Computed example of a mutant assay.
Amino acid sequence: MDVHESNRMQAESWDGPGGAYWAVHADRFDRAVAGYQERFEEAAAVRRGERVLDVGCGGGLTTRWAARASVDGEVLGIDLSSRLLEVAERRAKEEGLDNVGFVQGDAQVHPFEREHVDVVISRTGSMFFGDPVAAFANLLSATRPGGRMVLLTWQGPDRNEWIRGTLGVLGAAPGPTADLDAPGMFALSRPARIREVLEAAGWAAVEVDSVERTEWFGEDVNDAMEFLRGLFAWLLEGLSTDEREAAEARLRESLRAHTGPNGVEFGSAAWLVTGRREAHDEH
């Protein structure tokens, strides 16, 4: 797998322990953001016969949706994680989808076929590039003139209750001086930054719309606690026994305060981002 040096740490995480944990819990991660799926699909509006590229496809839920929507089109999912791609490939096979493929790669530098796809999609998978302008320029070159792109990216931590209610109580939420534009979950959390990056990469007609949904973390407190204790194990490793117990107690109380009839849910907010490659440009 050819990985740009600026994405080396991301690759080591996603193709290491981080990606392995996501693969084991792929269904849970998909359920967590399921509230956004219908709006995302409506915006992507994949039509029969279209060629689709799914960036940061993870376990492949959005890739498989695109394959069904395109019917006899062609869909490719790309991700850094070999473990998540194993899940994606297995699920596609189980569903009998023969118009979908997956590749392990860094979308910032992957040699996509030029001007091949009709639509690029990415559901919370496009915020981690070391050089986002180069990455989105590479995706533009893979898109046919007149083609489109649809992204779902997180809004800032101040707009996402789940950040304050999980990472926040563990003392790891981004502070007021944090560089939210750095590669990571919030790299595309500011509309001005989103437009700056995409327009510099050559995308046109960039639109950024706010979407607010709840994010689900578990059937009950114990279920959510077990999941989050594993997800945030890196935060707890260096703590003393007393510190770890105190942190877990704060997390448990936060989860209890956000438990309702549907389980443990927190408020969340994302940006639905759309753009187009101009019908005739110089790329």
Results as ranks from 00 to 15, higher is better:
residue 136 F to P: 04
residue 139 L to I: 07
residue 138 N to G: 08
residue 123 R to H: 14
residue 151 L to M: 12
residue 133 V to W: 09
residue 130 G to C: 15
residue 148 R to S: 14
residue 131 D to P: 08
residue 115 E to H: 05
residue 145 P to I: 11
residue 157 P to G: 02
residue 148 R to V: 15
residue 127 M to V: 04
residue 130 G to L: 11
residue 125 G to K: 00
residue 137 A to E: 13
residue 161 E to N: 10
residue 119 V to T: 14
residue 137 A to C: 08
residue 117 V to Y: 13
residue 140 L to A: 10
residue 127 M to P: 01
residue 158 D to G: 06
residue 116 H to E: 08
residue 149 M to L: 15
residue 128 F to G: 02
residue 114 R to N: 12
residue 158 D to C: 04
residue 149 M to F: 04
residue 157 P to C: 04
residue 135 A to D: 13
residue 116 H to I: 00
residue 149 M to V: 12
residue 152 L to W: 11
residue 149 M to P: 07
residue 120 V to D: 05
residue 126 S to T: 04
residue 155 Q to S: 02
residue 114 R to D: 12
residue 158 D to K: 06
residue 126 S to K: 00
residue 139 L to R: 03
residue 150 V to M: 06
residue 127 M to W: 05
residue 123 R to E: 14
residue 151 L to Y: 08
residue 137 A to T: 12
residue 161 E to Y: 11
residue 124 T to D: 11
residue 151 L to E: 04
residue 124 T to S: 12
residue 157 P to W: 01
residue 162 W to Q: 03
residue 146 G to V: 14
residue 149 M to K: 02
residue 147 G to P: 07
residue 127 M to C: 02
residue 131 D to S: 09
residue 142 A to C: 01
residue 152 L to H: 12
residue 114 R to I: 11
residue 145 P to A: 13
residue 115 E to I: 06
residue 131 D to L: 03
residue 118 D to R: 05
